[in-house]
Design a protein around this nucleic acid. Sequence first.
DNA 1: CGCAGGGGAGAACGCTCGTTCTCTCCTCGT
DNA 2: ACGAGGAGAGAACGAGCGTTCTCCCCTGCG
Lengths: 196, 196
Amino acid sequence: MPDREAAQDQALRAAEKLFYSHGIRAVGMDAVRNASGLSLKRLYQLFPSKEALVLQFLSRRDRQWRQALAHYVDTHTTPEERVIAVFEWLHTWFSEPDYRGCAFINSFGELGGTSPEVAAQTRRHKQAFRDYLVTLVTATGRPATLGDQLVLLAEGAITTAAITGTAQPATQARDAARLLMLTYAQHNQAHPDVGQ
Amino acid sequence: MPDREAAQDQALRAAEKLFYSHGIRAVGMDAVRNASGLSLKRLYQLFPSKEALVLQFLSRRDRQWRQALAHYVDTHTTPEERVIAVFEWLHTWFSEPDYRGCAFINSFGELGGTSPEVAAQTRRHKQAFRDYLVTLVTATGRPATLGDQLVLLAEGAITTAAITGTAQPATQARDAARLLMLTYAQHNQAHPDVGQ
DNA sequence: CGCAGGGGAGAACGCTCGTTCTCTCCTCGT
DNA sequence: ACGAGGAGAGAACGAGCGTTCTCCCCTGCG
């Protein structure tokens, strides 16, 4: 018997590509079988159901995505650069040839109304991203409020890049982020009055 | 024979509710039949296929959504207020009890990789939204660049509100929009240097 | 009053899907 | 060498889908 973990990885890699590019419901277990080279029997030994495969696909994707982002951010030193690096990384992500948006947003739109587990996993992923970005922002001495606003820019860029098929939203979001960073000057942590 | 247009409207209203809350592939024609009260035969007289029903659902949704937004914006007079009104309207939309994000983003995530028509309709809808917002922004004497940034805030708020289940992203986006509006002061149309 | 025609209800069809089963072959311990 | 056990390939099964068909009733005109 080949290594169980290696086989799981093989299956998940194939499933990731298929689920991400065609959507989840559009991909049958036969397609995963063909793409992974594993037999159906083995597939069901490794994952008790398609739902379990989907959940593990999302879990793996979450780990890899956040790790790739953090790795890129860590090549920058000053707190401000590290915030901006998030949007630079988004640009390289959007430029991948088969970019089709955020796997979690797509899965949520497709299954969020049906599968509570998928909805929960999506919430966890987005919450983790927000927490990370807020950490980067507060490290510059700016308020978490700004972090929430930058999250919106990033999310908007992610979906707009997917729909328009260009990476341009990343630079637009980066520019807006720079402006907001200037507005929330680091030595004036009480942010400007934006009340009604 | 009951009025053809009335029957189409009945079918589309039922389909809209089902497609929006459960996703498109998750809803069968039987469900549309039950929800609309129309017979399957009549349904296929009105729409040659499910795909046609889906496309008309999106088309109707686009019209109604943009109309509702424009109607709310038109209750405001000054150009600046009209821009901010967009985010206020988003807040009321997010507060609807069965809010589940943007029907186009959800459809795109589910079918964009499979159906070119759905992808095209999504692009048209988002393009129309962008054009409208840019129009509102340039009416204040500010550059279209700001309009693109506000689009990202709005899109980010739409998906974040769907995933978190709160309307809060609308006010966060509105606050960020206000700050960006201040940055792009209306009598200084050359926007600040945000180059590398 | 009789009958043709259209519409409603839902059964039926062909297909695909998730999941399981069968059959065969290979391997490995003794 | 031989038998047991596990793995691969894919057939099979039951359910659900989109779509069509059948049957029956109702209606409206001669």
